[in-house]
């Protein structure tokens, strides 16, 4: 028996550890360090219909126990991802979760329809929560009706289950979660980054060229834990939790509040081996807590 096995819509995960979208490119850089087949799944960088250059630099700024980024969804576009990035990943025994982004419903739908047909794409992650682009992204993620409608439109064309990535930059995240569930979402991934700003100490101006950026890293974990805790009580679809995960203990926390799997983002930049290290550490963590299998931990905060 594989104690770390998790079954989710479209995803048979050998373990619950998934590099988060935007923090792992399309896998090639981290493939230099370890066998990507070791991972539960991979959330690839957001893909849009056309090539995007993204925001001006500086795009990142470090903060206390975290970082701000405003990359701006830079990616080579759908055609290139289908022709090069996804085929390269086929040599690994790992399901791909394709992060889909756009400016309006039509381009989300176009990307979703095409990318969901790629043989190694087992699920979509609908990006309605990127805080760093002017149009699309977060505007869908902060209004329940828009979120629900977009989910339904993408569901109608996707060949694989659709997970919706929620923004924490809302007053009532449970309301958005319920809306995307009603729109037909198969699962939720959460949280995207929190909008923040860091100033240059001398000039008093923002360091990031975009002005604001998305806060990630260990600093945001308590916010993410609270939100997963709340959303898991309000929906009946599975949650992939994320926000500051860097250790096996962090994974246990997310599972405890109701996540079924966990994405690792910023920590990859700090330690390129963080995902395999967490995977290796999980069995002992289960032993310490007295659980046979990982799924026994899911939702224990609510019991």
């Amino acid at each position: 028996m594989n104690r770390l096995q998790v079954e989710l819509p479209g995803l048979s995960l050998k373990n619950p550890i998934i590099p988060a979208s935007g923090c792992f490119g399309f896998g090639q850089e981290y493939g230099q360090f370890y066998d990507l087949s070791k991972l539960g799944a991979i959330m690839i960088k957001a893909t849009t219909l056309e090539t995007r250059f993204g925001n001006p630099t500086p795009r990142v700024a470090e903060t206390a126990a975290g970082m701000l980024n405003a990359i701006g969804l830079q990616n080579p576009g759908l055609e290139h991802v289908l022709a090069h990035e996804l085929p390269w990943l086929e040599k690994y025994d790992v399901p791909i979760i394709a992060n889909v982004a756009g400016t309006e419903t039509a381009d989300y739908v176009a990307v979703a329809e095409a990318i969901s047909k790629a043989p190694n794409v087992h699920a979509l992650e609908l990006n309605i929560s990127c805080p760093n682009v002017k149009c699309g992204g977060i505007q869908f993620g902060t209004d329940p009706k828009s979120a629900s409608d977009l989910t339904a439109a993408v569901k109608a064309v996707s060949d694989v289950p659709v997970y919706v990535k929620l923004s924490p930059n809302v007053t009532n995240i449970a309301e958005i979660a319920k809306a995307v569930e009603a729109g037909g979402a198969d699962g939720i991934t959460m949280i995207n980054t929190l909008i923040g700003m860091r100033l240059h100490p001398r000039t008093g101006k923002p360091i990031i060229a975009n002005g604001t950026g998305g806060l990630s890293g260990p600093a945001v974990k308590p916010v993410a834990i609270r939100m997963v805790h709340e959303v898991s009580r309000n929906v009946n679809i599975p949650i992939i939790g994320m926000g500051g995960v860097a250790t096996a203990e962090d994974v246990i926390d997310f599972l405890s509040v109701g996540a079924s799997a966990v994405a690792v983002g910023t920590a990859n930049f700090v330690d390129p081996f963080v995902c395999p290290n967490i995977i290796d550490a999980l069995p002992q963590k289960l032993d310490e807590l007295g659980y046979d299998k990982l799924t026994d931990v899911i939702g224990r905060s609510h019991r």
């Binding site: 935007g22 250059f53 630099t57 990142v60």
Partner: peptide, 17 residues
């Protein structure tokens, strides 16, 4: 030079035109 995240090409923080 530019502010970097990962240092290995994955995060797209330090791109230039």
């Amino acid at each position: 030079e530019e502010r970097m995240g990962c240092g290995i090409g994955a995060c797209f923080a330090c791109v230039c035109n």
